[in-house]
Design a binder for these strands. Structure first.
Lengths: 194, 194
DNA sequence: TATCTCATGTAAGTGGTTACATGATTGC
DNA sequence: GCAATCATGTAACCACTTACATGAGATA
């Protein structure tokens, strides 16, 4: 049986490429992995520990002076097998629960006051999404020019696709925010007219 | 303190509009609420029970013949207060963990075999997203023609925005799938060339 | 006869977060 | 002197899912 515990497949994927400590992997969630995955260091450590108990990974302790020992993890044969087996399984596509949409609907049932609060939230969102889109686009122009992409190894080209996903999602969200603004302008403007 | 337990704000929002049983609300997750929220009946029942204990909602038992009694819930003053307070709080925007992206990256580290498996998954995805987009567009043409929308109450117009969100997200996903297909065609085609 | 709908619930588990803890080293 | 970085971990909690259970009535 292949469960859903998705973090473990992230970790296996990382360890396919290179050995690493929990700490190092956690750092990656701030950069490359961060386009599509978040995990706290506690979660990473616990999952690595479990995976070690199940024989999917092993570690070697690398002592350091003045710092805690590092546990350098590497993937085992059965870890590789599990990752391949998971790749062959169809993904269950569950829909995401979107808090922002709850707020949109809630604004509707709360009247004028709700609409004003929604406006504020949406303005904050716009700034955040514009910022993130800008970041992604900067990474794209810096590291993924068409010429550079053409000569890249397969693995990196696929990582680039996850960045592209981020870009398209951010753009779609900003387009949607335009529609929200238009609707809110109409609904709240109407009040002023009367 | 206002926690994250988001389901409770969904439930409060629904109960602002109308009294309802847990069963009825669960059904709504298959339709309108389903554009952006999923919840099992167990989860709904448990949350309603907690909320009742906290005084956010109350219920009246409506006996029926041949069927179990219905518990008809309604929102209380303090439930309304909580919803308003939540509306005024900024939403924490955590990023979503996307299993599909894990698979894209994993395909890269697994070589040719991984690319083939990814192709299959992506084909399945395309079908699913096309189907969902079609559903959404049908709902739009049926219930939200421009003329109809213009005369709708605010609450419904905001619900419409959540449908629009669904449409834009599905379209963005399909655009991204086009990019994925192009890349995969190039990477796997290359093998045949050599 | 079997499955579906109505309508409620319990129990166990999973995936993930938050708070707390340790302890040396580096930089403001 | 204070915070940040390196590097690990425990404990408690939260949100949510899956499996199981009940029991009548309607539909295939």
């Amino acid at each position: 049986m292949i469960g859903k515990m998705s973090l473990r497949y992230v970790l296996l994927t990382v360890l396919m490429e290179t050995d690493a400590t929990g700490y190092e992997i956690t750092k990656e969630f701030d950069t490359v992995l961060g386009y599509f995955w978040q995990a706290s260091h506690q979660h990473v450590y616990r999952e690595l520990k479990r995976m070690e108990e199940e024989g999917l990974v092993r570690f070697e302790v690398a002592p350091q002076e003045g710092k805690p020992d590092r546990k350098v993890y590497s993937i085992t044969g059965s870890g590789r097998d599990l990752l391949r087996a998971w790749m062959a399984e169809p993904l269950s596509q569950r829909r995401v629960n979107d808090e922002l949409m709850v707020r949109v609907v809630a604004a509707g049932v709360l009247g004028a006051e709700g609409l004003e609060l929604l406006k504020k939230e949406m303005a904050a969102r716009r700034i955040a999404h514009e910022k993130r889109l800008k970041e992604y686009l900067e990474i794209e122009t810096e590291h993924y020019s068409p010429e550079a992409v053409a000569g890249m190894p397969d693995a990196i080209r696929l990582v680039y696709l996850t960045l592209r996903r981020g870009i398209l999602v951010q753009r779609a969200t900003l387009d949607w925010l335009d529609e929200v603004d238009a609707t809110l302008a109409e609904l709240t403007g109407r009040v002023g007219e009367g």
